[in-house]
Design a protein around this nucleic acid. Structure first.
Length: 590
RNA sequence: GCUGGUAUAGCUCAGUCGGUAGAGCGCUCCGUUGGUAACGGAGAGGCUCCCGAGUUCGAAUCUCGGUACCAGCACCA
């Protein structure tokens, strides 16, 4: 059985799950009083959750692996059995009993698998015989706490993670992948390339270095351009607002834990804004609005602050202060669909330029919500319809209960170098806030009506977006985004004057270049530009000075000698405007 | 916040048994005047080895508390 279907995904999952039984047996044999949680197969292996008095640490890994290998030597079969009196059978295993009770209530048959004397509640499937796992490559990767059934009100179990692949070679390849992914890690690259850093006094609040700021500003510029073209008007509200605003918006009640608060005196507390919405409401209310003003699109790029749980921070991906390419659209019920599509158009355009692969997620009503259920259902139906049209029914994920407290949302998720998922774009329909702030506009019939509010961000957090694209491009940013676009290296001091002229021309044309006139050797200068991942290196020596040309070294490795600067600048202009174009490697010297 | 781990030069890291700190890269200076990924040589950089207590004649090292970061869980409005 093993050979011919060894690469079948179902077989691999069954094998990993079988290995989780082996892990569980090993832990049960090595330690006393072990209670079992669950032990499923995952993307790169498996885990099993245990409740035991002994604290498992890295020092225990070798012993557990040795025990697992010992168990694998047995030639036993995974035997499936139906349990007659499940509640009695599992009476002394509280976690299993909890699962069994639910299964029984749902009318399910209760089965166990027995292998080598180890019995575990399990619906299967498994490999047939233990010997099929003998050539697998596996290694305990880590130990971590995990709440029973993913609920923080429940006890925390000890989760042992195991990397497991059908062969030792594949395991080795997986570790090679992890090594590569580590090199792409935006935290490593950000440090190496002087883009940003963090200080202990401001956890989760990035310091942006000059080169990181070049990227940041370029994205802001790009965002402004796109949104202006789509009829958005930029505004900016205060960083701090009195608590009364947050009480009105509902944040004081629903988002209390995540706000940074500043107490001014006994009676007055302000909070740094975690979101722009309430101030957008104030901006709308400032004037009497007419149906002729709708849809009204206010964009805002200001800084937000959110007080996150200490363990939640993660480089630029999860921070405590960041800028959002936020916007609030005020519109009528009839305008929702076209506005939603307009937003999706912007999203397609922007994500297409970066070549990011993404997944759409519809998040529905959470447990803690404002408003009535009918309005929620209506809003969810509108979003679903947009997604069905654009992605096709079933071509997106539905996250039941994942919505914001004020409305359902569409999120766009992308993946980092380690394939971890991060949310960027978000589009949220809000039927509550307009009511809380008593927003109104005068309709064509002269009646006062409440507008619908759409909150949306395309990059999401600019900071997170830079983290994501840093990993996506492995810091080989496209020409238009590169913090330094051209590095100039004179072969000799005598060539510096001409090199200065070249740089002057590039500056005049609006390109970001640096000229290295330090004492180092030319080889060193080229090396340092290469390490910096600069898209183009211009080399100036006798030949170039004599011909009035430049020699170019492209980041991709191509070398082109003796071309006119004007040809290169023409190419730069194309790359600066047509964002999707990769580095140009051919220049006609016409 | 929870579980496990980590914290030493600007960066990446070594530091055994507790005896007041090392390497490579980078930086500075001197020499080298060059044609495409690391030219020699010298030097500075740690006075608080994340912070605070404790044990000890003596702590980077051991113990306790804190902080930050890493992996995961929960959270992600």
């Amino acid at each position: 059985m093993a050979k011919n279907i060894a690469n079948d995904a179902n077989y691999i999952e069954a094998a990993r799950h079988s290995l989780s039984h082996v892990l569980a047996q090993a832990v049960c044999e090595l330690f006393d009083g072990v209670q079992l949680g669950i032990g499923p197969a995952i993307e790169d292996g498996l885990y099993y959750d245990f409740d035991l008095h002994h604290r498992i640490t890295e020092d225990d890994f070798a012993a557990i692996e040795a025990k697992m290998n010992e168990i694998l030597k047995s030639d036993t079969v995974f035997e499936k059995r139906v349990v007659e009196n499940p509640l009695d059978f599992f009476a002394n295993t509280p976690y299993k009993l909890e699962l069994v009770k639910e299964l029984v209530a749902a009318g399910e048959e209760i089965t166990v698998y027995e292998s080598n004397g180890f019995v575990d509640l399990c619906a299967g499937p498994h490999v047939e015989n233990m010997r099929e796992l003998r050539n697998w490559g596996f290694k305990i990767s880590s130990i971590a706490g995990a709440y029973w059934r993913g609920n923080s009100d429940n006890p925390m179990l000890q989760r042992v993670y195991v990397h497991a692949f059908p062969s030792r070679k594949e395991l080795k390849e997986y570790y090679a992948f992890l090594e590569e992914a580590k090199k792409r890690d935006h935290r490593t690259l950000g440090n190496q390339l002087d883009l940003f850093f963090f200080d202990e006094t401001a956890p989760g609040m990035p310091y942006w270095m000059p080169k990181g700021m070049k990227i940041y500003n370029k994205l802001l510029e790009f965002s402004r351009k796109v949104h202006e073209a789509h009829g958005y008007q930029e505004v900016v509200g205060p960083q701090l607002n009195h608590s009364s605003l947050w009480v009105t918006s509902g944040h004081w009640e629903h988002y209390d834990d995540n706000m940074f608060k500043v107490q001014i005196d006994e009676n007055n507390t302000y909070a740094l804004k975690p979101m722009n919405c309430p101030n957008a409401m104030i901006l709308f209310k400032k004037k009497n609005r007419s149906y002729r003003d709708l849809p009204l699109r206010f964009s805002e790029l200001s800084h937000l602050h959110r007080n996150e749980a200490s363990g939640a921070m993660h480089g630029l991906m999860r921070v405590q202060t960041f800028r959002q390419d936020d916007a609030h659209i005020f519109c009528t019920q009839e305008q929702i669909a076209s506005e939603m599509n307009g937003i999706m158009d912007i999203m397609d355009f922007i994500y297409g330029i970066f070549g990011l692969k993404y997944t759409a997620v519809l998040s529905t009503r959470p447990e803690s919500f404002l408003g009535d259920i009918e309005t929620w259902n209506e809003a969810e139906a509108v979003l679903k319809n947009v997604l069905d049209t654009r992605f096709g029914a079933g071509e997106y994920i539905v996250d039941e209960g994942g919505g914001a407290f004020y409305g359902p949302k569409i999120d766009i998720k992308v993946y980092d170098a380690l394939k971890r998922e991060w949310q960027l774009c978000t589009i949220q329909l809000d039927y509550q806030l307009a009511g809380n702030f008593e927003l109104e506009y005068t309709d064509s019939d002269g009646k006062r009506k409440a507008p619908v509010v759409i909150h949306r961000a395309v990059f999401g957090s600019l900071d997170r977006f830079i983290g994501v694209i840093t990993e996506h491009f492995a810091a080989r940013f496209p020409f238009w985004l590169a913090p330094v676009q051209v590095g100039i290296v004179p072969v000799h001091k005598d060539h510096e004057r001409y090199a200065h002229d070249i740089r002057e021309e590039l500056v005049q044309q609006g390109f970001k270049s640096t000229l290295d006139t330090s004492d180092g050797t030319m080889g060193n200068k080229i090396k340092s530009y290469r390490n910096e991942l600069v898209p183009y290196i211009i080399i100036i020596g006798d030949k170039e000075v004599a011909d009035g040309t430049i020699s170019l070294r492209v980041r991709t490795g191509t070398q082109i000698n003796g071309i006119p600067l004007s040809s290169f600048i023409d190419a730069c202009k194309i790359m600066e405007q047509a964002y999707k174009i990769d580095l140009i490697e051919n220049f006609d010297a016409d």
